[in-house]
Amino acid sequence: MTPGHLSAQHYACLYSWFAGLFARELDDAQLAQLQSQDVARWFEHLAQQPTLQAGVLAARNSIAALALRRDARLELAADFAGLFLMSQNNAALPYASCYQPDQTRFNQAACAEMQILLLQAGLERDQAFREPEDHLAICLELLSHLSFAVSENSANLAACLALREKALTLLMSWLPTFTAHCIEHDGFGFYAAQSQLLLAIVGLDWAQF
């Protein structure tokens, strides 16, 4: 195994973690976790992959800057709302439909595509998460589920790998533009940095196919 190699289980954990970052405003427990030794060790592991080094550095720096920010949780909540909950202008809405040729929010085709993937994976959208299926967090939870299935050598391994490739391809069709919008519109830079690292990880994963 090469240094910094990411297994399917690594990807499963990473996708689940990023889903939590982009699903809703961070709470105090999540902020404390970001500054924990566990996350620092994750970054050390990820940084052994050359294509992830720039993203890891950006993520590390953004987390270090939180310690210098007064009322960091409230300020991050404001950043989250401004980036992900407002209009498309000066924002980075986390929906696949916003980055399709027909940029209609909650585009039915984008949601339908994700609905099919979720159905094929045997998943249902969490009713407590009141967002359409093309939300970034749902895409990442799907990838986490499929990655865990692959890591467990499921009897349906070939089907899981095929679904995983489809989900990665769908995500990579809009994640670069989403990340560019985060970088452009996130003044403090926390979510811009996390999206940079996420894009690098998804790209590394996708390159395996």
Rank of each mutant, 00 (worst) to 15 (best):
A137C: 05
R60F: 02
L83F: 06
H45V: 08
F148S: 12
L142H: 07
E113V: 10
L161I: 02
N90V: 04
L123F: 05
Q120H: 13
E25V: 13
A96S: 11
L171N: 02
L34W: 14
W206P: 00
L119E: 15
M114V: 05
V150T: 03
R70D: 15
N61Y: 02
R41H: 09
A96P: 05
I116W: 06
L163K: 00
A47C: 10
D79N: 15
Y95W: 10
R70W: 09
A112Q: 15
E152T: 09
F188C: 10
Q196G: 08
P132R: 03
Q37N: 15
V39E: 06
A67V: 10
L118T: 04
L143W: 04
F18Y: 08
A32P: 07
A112Y: 02
A155P: 01
Q53R: 11
I63W: 12
A121F: 09
A19V: 02
A29I: 09
C139T: 11
L93W: 00
W42H: 05
L161W: 00
E131V: 14
P3F: 03
P94M: 03
D102R: 14
D134Q: 01
Q208I: 11
A19I: 07
A58T: 09
N89F: 02
F43A: 08
P3I: 00
P132W: 03
E131S: 11
L146F: 01
I201N: 00
A58K: 09
W174M: 14
E152L: 10
A110L: 08
H45K: 12
R164G: 04
L146V: 03
A64S: 10
L119G: 12
A121P: 04
A121E: 07
A162H: 05
G189D: 01
F43G: 08
A92I: 08
Q196Y: 08
L26C: 13
A65E: 10
E131Y: 03
L198C: 08
A158E: 08
A58W: 01
E75S: 15
L119F: 12
A167K: 02
F80K: 05
G189A: 05
A96G: 14
S62M: 07
T177C: 14
S36V: 04
A149E: 13
A155S: 11
A109M: 13
Q127E: 15
I183M: 05
R24F: 07
L117T: 06
A47N: 14
L66F: 10
D134A: 12
D71V: 06
F22K: 03
L66T: 12
A159H: 10
S151C: 04
T179Y: 01
G187Q: 15
L136E: 01
C182E: 11
A67T: 14
G203Q: 03
L163N: 03
Q108T: 13
S151Q: 06
H135L: 02
L14I: 07
A137F: 01
T179C: 13
T177I: 13
T104S: 15
H135E: 05
H181P: 06
L170F: 14
A65C: 01
A167N: 06
Q53T: 14
P132F: 04
Q30R: 13
